[in-house]
Amino acid sequence: MEPRNRFDRSIQQDSSPVDDDLPGAGPEPHPASILIVEDEGIVAQDLKEALTRLGYRITGVASEGAQAVSMAAQLRPELVVMDVSLRGEIDGIQAARMMQEHAHVPVIFLTGHRDAETLQRAVMTGPLGYLIKPFQEDELRCAIEVAIHKHRAELQVREREEELRRSAELLQNLSLIDELTQLRNRRGFFELAQQALKVAQREHYAMGVFFMDLNGLKRINDTLGHQAGDQALRDTAEVLRDTFRSSDILARIGGDEFVAMAHVHSTQDLHALAGRLREHLQIFNQTHRRPYPLNISVGMTLVDIPTEEDLESLLARADAAMYEEKRAVSNRA
């Protein structure tokens, strides 16, 4: 155990009165909240009185490491002033390490130890201050102010980094989204679908690839204008969202072309999805008054696992199947 020394209070804080009416005098800043961790009652009381004189707010006093960790999580102080050597199974260094795992609360260590081993253990926890007993009150105040300032600066840096990360993530998402339909664009589809194909190959389950074409888009643009054409594309996206599951990958890959990759078990599932798409198209045309009928051609292919085909080949196969359907409809007409 370290020697228990009450710190030297020979230098006191200047207690001269402050005239609040002086020009430029603003409201005092909110006092920093501090948790004291000290298992010697007299020393803890001295610390509490000194910190109160220095203008800080004491949120609590803990005498054991486990208690300190719990109080730090509950009270969320701006700073912990903690003795290194605490009675019990958890000393101050271990308690500081546990605090850092749950919250980034800054710690100032107080110790009578001067040996290199204790110092090295303490430094590894990343404290923002380390005072050797006995110390003077102004040394304590300086250590606290430096620690709080450094901690707030670190918080600002982390907030800026988080904001930059969110901005980068937003830009990344925007680069993967089709602005008109809010489906994935071609790049977004390939990034997700290639990963889904790898997972399917690893987990040995089948996938279905669909290639879909909005029929008559050029005619809608030529006769009704591009605003109507844009609405037809948004309508198509709405019908596709209603047809496929949220876990399926939907995209508009350009012009009037849409693709989807869905988790299926058999060719029967492919035809069931295509049938559901036609039902939803019929319902949409009946319930929405548009100057055009929404009509979509569908080609599909089952991805048997394992497969050596890449995503481009699978899309080409589904595209060929779609044009076969177009020719069959044209011949029947």
Rank of each mutant, 00 (worst) to 15 (best):
H280N: 15
R186K: 13
S167T: 12
D39H: 03
Q172G: 07
R87F: 00
C142L: 15
Q286S: 13
D8H: 01
D235V: 12
V81C: 06
K198E: 12
R4G: 01
I148Q: 05
R53V: 08
F7P: 13
L311F: 07
V264F: 08
H113V: 01
Q201I: 03
E38T: 02
G188H: 12
D39R: 03
V18G: 03
R57A: 07
G254N: 06
E312D: 14
A143F: 04
I108M: 09
A260S: 08
A168P: 00
Q195F: 04
R166E: 11
L277S: 01
S246F: 10
P27A: 08
L86I: 10
L140Y: 11
Q100W: 00
M212A: 03
S246H: 06
V264N: 03
D115F: 12
E309D: 14
L174C: 01
A32N: 07
G129A: 09
A96C: 12
T125R: 11
A153N: 14
F284R: 09
Q13Y: 06
Q282K: 11
D235I: 12
D269G: 05
F210V: 04
Q172M: 03
D178I: 03
V264D: 04
L131G: 04
L273E: 01
P127A: 10
D20E: 08
H204W: 06
A272Y: 07
S16D: 07
D91R: 06
S246Q: 14
A206D: 06
Q194D: 13
A95C: 03
K218W: 06
Q227G: 02
N173E: 15
E308P: 04
L294I: 00
I220K: 06
L155W: 11
K326W: 03
L75Q: 15
R186I: 05
G65W: 08
N331A: 10
